[in-house]
Design a protein around this nucleic acid. Structure first.
Lengths: 337, 337
DNA sequence: AAATATAGTGAACACGTGTTCACCTAACGG
DNA sequence: CCGTTAGGTGAACACGTGTTCACTATATTT
């Protein structure tokens, strides 16, 4: 006994509509192409028959045309559990839809492999949007060979015709350190994400430089994984250690939230009296009344609108030189510092 | 001065590779089709030239074949701000990738219009996955006409060959009410989401039935929008009102979190002594140590794996009758009831 | 040595579109 | 009445693939 694998039923084609309506296939195509010369009555008839048969022009076949685009844009997103990527993905998808593009989404959990990206490049994408920094730069080479525009967000990539939108991480770290010092904190710790990500590297370097300019040294530098649970574990390790700490700068909000909770519940600390905590990103949860996390805003609306602008310009002028836009962060003062 | 609209650069084709490698175009196609008869040396040569020119077979053109599929699967997701949809989307995308499918994602913010879905149906999708209940049932008719398999999750849809995966909402409400009553609460309120969603209707009906069986009447029934802020505002209205309430059943976790915060901060209530709060879904935040929300688990792993199973079976047997799977919810006892 | 099987090959077809091209008809102006 | 213009029309082509179909050259069996 074998499973009878039924042949895939196919969708109605323009040819079938033409036959049913008693017109040529060309006429059917014209009926769906605004501005094409076609008798009004005939057009009405064709649309009616199409409606009845359930015909819709196949967008893929249309995109095969020399003039046509696929209108597909791939988005490689970071881990959706971190909330920041989740929120920015939603805004980005909405914006793309406004441009008539459809997002093919990759990633969203742990690491996205380069192989996965290479697979999706088999499609004639209008563009590839790379969010986050966990992917090798060789992707740029492949995109270039395939003439697929590449837009990178969350890191800077030096390559021809590659556009970048990135937060000024050094400045963000400056702001955080300055605020902590202003509040009288001197024994400052840094809690980072995955060390190989440029966002972590830049925020850490910014932290160290800002401290140095103030004549201070880092109390401790710890690394985690940008997650709530990671932040919870890391602050536990830090507070169980020897050195004393009175200020904590976290490389993203999710870790800051975990750290906040552990410091209060596991160690009974008062925030911000005993310990100041500052996050990075300003996700929606940070402004919940029960949370009120002080943080560095990594503006999502600005980021998305810059990505969309660069995409639009790139589609118009495929050969123009690459552009790098820095988003200026802003300190959001709430209750934890 | 006009913007010079450069002609879109095209990607390398099999024809160009064939010319460069001195072979026929057929040979190039065979080089990328495992199992095709082709001289080993020639294959190596072709792959080398392809690598050099940056050639990759165009997946869309391949999908045009009578035998081929596009490997694109559209996902219509609910509002990503509610966290539940965000988490399930991540799992779903990962699962689809495991099946060799690529997700084209729609929605993610406020309401997804039917028009938007009709637009994406222009693509020859392998399937359409509809999450959440804010879309008209006529979508099923369009999918049927286009021979695009439809899988619905989060609601039940009665239509030929449509598969559904849905939580047993009545049972979930039963569990919540039983727990609240067990803890001595008798003046129970229901806080729902958008009233036109079947998830809200079923959870509310379940709430009312369970109360009736216990010989109780609802203290109050309030509706909001499934968001944190909405929950915050609604509980404020409820507690400012006349009737007294000692137990609150929320139709999702996001609203429960908002309600929890407002009850504590705005009204100084002790949870669960003064007021019990029970959510629905069991999102990741619900188990944060600082939250510990009692809730009804709407199991995401089960839901996703059922969706994937139904999809897989549907692709094998396009004409088999539609199947509806109910996910059995489970009460998760934490600190808020 | 003859007959047969096997691996390899390129031309041709099919997939479903949008668009160009040549052609036809009818309307219009002189 | 003729010349021009305009709108409408279907055949044919192009897009980039995978696959079938004859056909050849080599290897294997009788």
């Amino acid at each position: 006994m074998t499973t009878s694998k039924v042949s895939k039923p196919r969708r109605v084609t323009a040819k079938q509509v033409a036959k049913a309506a008693g017109v040529s296939r060309s006429a059917v195509s014209r009926a769906f192409t605004p501005g094409s010369p076609l008798d009004e009555d005939k057009k009405k008839k064709i649309l009616q028959v199409s409606e009845q048969l359930g015909y819709r022009p196949n967008a893929l076949a249309a995109g095969l045309q020399s003039t046509g685009r696929s209108n597909l844009v791939a988005i490689v997103t970071g881990d959706l559990v971190n909330h920041y990527d989740s929120e920015i993905l939603a805004k980005l998808m909405q914006g793309l839809h406004g441009m008539g593009k459809w997002p093919v989404v990759l990633g969203g959990s742990s690491e996205t492999t380069e192989a996965e990206i290479l697979e999706v490049l088999a499609y004639p994408l209008d563009a590839l949007i790379l969010r986050g920094g966990s992917v090798d730069e060789s992707v740029a080479i492949h995109c270039a060979k395939l003439n697929i525009p590449l837009i990178v967000s969350g890191r800077v990539m030096q390559a021809d015709r590659v556009d970048c939108v990135c937060c000024d991480n050094a400045r963000g770290a400056d702001l955080a350190v300055a605020q902590l010092i202003n509040h009288g904190k001197t024994r400052l710790a840094y809690l980072g994400g995955q060390e190989h990500l440029s966002s972590d590297q830049e925020r850490m370097a910014g932290f160290e430089n800002a401290l140095a300019r103030a004549g201070l040294k880092p109390a401790i530098i710890e690394h985690s994984d940008y997650s709530y649970e990671g932040g919870y574990r890391s602050i536990t390790r830090i507070l169980n250690g020897n050195g004393s700490v009175d200020g904590l700068f976290c490389a993203n909000d999710a870790m800051a939230l975990g750290a906040l909770t552990a410091a209060r519940q596991e160690f009974g600390l008062n925030i911000p009296t005993d310990l100041s905590v500052v996050g990075f990103d300003d996700i929606a949860i940070a402004q919940w009344p029960s949370i009120q996390l002080s943080t560095v805003r990594n503006d999502m609306d600005q980021t998305v609108s810059e990505i969309l602008r660069l995409l639009s310009e790139r589609l118009d002028q495929p050969a123009k030189p690459g552009e790098t836009v820095f988003i200026t962060p802003e300190f959001v003062s709430r209750g934890t510092h």
